[in-house]
Design a protein around this nucleic acid. Structure first.
Lengths: 363, 363
DNA sequence: CCCTCGGACTTTAGCGTTAACGTTTCGCAC
DNA sequence: GTGCGAAACGTTAACGCTAAAGTCCGAGGG
């Protein structure tokens, strides 16, 4: 801990009491202009900064908001955090990020830590939130808003998105292009958002009179590598003309899997993502995807937490934001399957095993 | 602020003084087993957690390390932060991230804020660190270690990497593949790492007897979009056979720019990155790049800060870590330029303007 | 029987702030 | 000159915790 200037030192130097210094610095009345100027001057000169711990202790609050996130490892969590940061900055609140990293136990630990008077409230991004953790939050009476929780019916104020409509429209887009053999990579199965998106997928197909083929549906983690692997298997075994993925990272994997198998995207194979991570527009061709308003989600949650902290009762416990289909370059009408098959059969040596790391194109 | 249980409440409930409770909970001697058990029992039952602000105020330290980062928007900063987190977790220190977001002024503000007794020390990731800010750190006497500062000669303990050797080897790799017309996209010009990498580039060429063509060298921001744009211009105007980029994000842009112009990577065009972001291995073909040991950089900085906080004098003020060339799929021997030119001329309608969003390959 | 010693606790005080209340001073009306 | 009120400032206490310095008591030695 650096050697710090205290209010008492400023007071002595300025020839007044500590209380006067405090009043001046906090813009309270009860000090002459002359004194005010002198105090400000001395404070400036000594580089005085009020001690946060002392102030918090006295005030019984800290002005800090804690942000817990499982997911600081991806752009997903980051975009949300940026939304939070923007909203809190506007409210002159400070933000402390205290990541959890892939671990439900650590999640509880983090809450206990933050709730020891360090923060006034907590925002959680994509939390696991098992029963025990929710109970802890309730018992400690910590103001808390969660964003995209694993279980959407959790008994806490929460911000979620319209996963169902989003995926439904995305798949409708694929259908309208003419695809009927559409593979689906679901994402982690213990997340409500995964199953809700899947319902959107099923309903879109059913509504269009297309039957859901269970062989075209697989689960995998929300990662590029798993997406690549799952898509490779799916394409190799069941030849869909398009894949709808439960997340952008999976979709990126799927795009590259298709390429690795010698399929051109989108001419010969279409891929639909879900999230609209920054990377989706920063790749070539841009990923067609269902946009979650990540920044808005963060802002909405932050705003809700602030109003709770202001003592207002929340009107909505469940804040659902809309999703939006963003059509970019990874979707197109399906190509002539026979033609593709012919081409692939013709060049069927070499591209199946060690495809990653070599270009799938040839001159 | 949630309603909190204080040590006094535990003390009363257990029929002892607050001091005894404190001693028991902190594992200090001076309490009978009987009392000890009773206190622990009551504390558990009431859900007592010591108030951090009070403890900090008393102790004059907080056990917290502040992490300031300009760059929480990219994987670059994240990987470093993870290294920091891992090291601090091992030392049972808590970490608070308090991002800065692209703004030197806010950087100073953040330091002032954290230095008000909230943290014991500060780690800064890729800081701007103007004179004034360094002076502030010095004046406040805040233990601080910086990682990859914009100016590498800054008078603070710092962790940097061997940018020179890294780029030199990377370019040697391109040269050894047979490239001689190598474009260079430098990255932001006010960063020392940019100019040092550029020196590595120049020296590699010179050593190989290749002259540095200034028309093949351009500057741009560390973003995908700028990389795309810069590479498009460079390729369009001066036809290099390869590009070395000052950062992976730029390299990704360059890869896609080449594709957008109808060039196959790596068969017809090679790209070298610098950083080895996770994305570099999670793309197709994988990006050949110079690896910065981001995780290690975070760990190293954290370890250094911890030893400063332990009162040890640092032996090294400048901790330089090695870089490593990672050869993946975006580099290969240069193709026959005439053949490519012929092909491009033949299909020169349509691929020049609206190339983004459509696949660069054709059947 | 007194003294000492050490274990088991309690009391005091203070970390830096600030709310609440107290005191001084001074101008002004009567 | 007396009284009064407001402005300007000081004092006290408390937020929750814990280091340091007591207090109390019973066992053991002389």
């Amino acid at each position: 801990m650096p050697d710090r200037v205290t209010i008492a030192q400023v007071a002595e130097e300025a020839g007044v009491s500590a209380m006067t210094v405090s009043n001046v610095l906090n813009g309270k009345p009860g000090a002459s202009d002359e004194t005010r100027r002198r105090v400000l001057d001395v404070a400036q000169r000594l580089g005085y900064q009020p001690n946060i711990s002392a102030r918090n202790l006295k005030a019984g609050r800290s002005g800090l908001i804690g942000v817990l996130t499982l997911d600081l490892t991806t752009q997903y969590g980051l975009e949300i955090v940026r939304g939070i940061a923007d909203e809190l900055a506007a409210a002159e609140r400070e933000l402390l990020i205290n990541a959890t990293y892939q671990d439900g136990v650590r999640e509880m630990e983090r809450i206990e830590f933050l709730s020891r008077g360090l923060v006034d409230g907590v925002l959680m991004v994509a939390p696991v939130l098992d029963e025990e953790t929710v109970e802890l939050l309730r018992r400690k009476n910590i103001p808390c808003v969660v964003i995209d929780p694993r279980r959407q019916d959790v008994a806490l104020p929460r911000v979620i998105v319209d996963n169902y409509e989003g995926m439904r429209r995305g798949v409708q887009h694929l259908l309208s292009l003419g695809h009927t053999r559409i593979g689906y990579i679901r994402g982690e199965s213990d997340m409500d958002s995964s199953s809700i998106r899947f319902r959107g997928f099923c309903d879109a197909l059913t509504l269009a009179g297309v039957e859901v083929d269970p062989r075209l549906v697989v689960d995998c983690d929300f990662t590029y590598a798993h997406g690549f692997q799952a898509a490779s298997a799916l394409i190799g075994e069941h030849r869909p003309t398009a894949i709808a993925a439960g997340a952008d990272l999976i979709a990126f994997g799927a795009v590259d899997a298709a390429r690795a198998l010698g399929l051109s995207v989108p001419d010969e194979f279409s891929v639909l993502g879900f999230d609209d991570l920054p990377q989706a527009s920063q790749s070539f061709p841009g990923l067609t995807t269902v946009r979650q308003p990540l920044h808005d989600m963060g802002q909405t949650a932050a705003r809700a937490l602030l109003s709770i902290l202001d003592g207002q009762r929340l009107l909505l416990d469940r804040m659902q934001l809309p999703t939006e289909l963003i059509v970019r370059g990874t979707t197109a009408a399906p190509a002539d399957v026979d033609a593709i098959l012919d081409r692939l059969l013709a060049s069927s040596r070499g591209t199946s095993d060690d495809a990653v790391g070599a270009s799938g194109q040839d001159a």
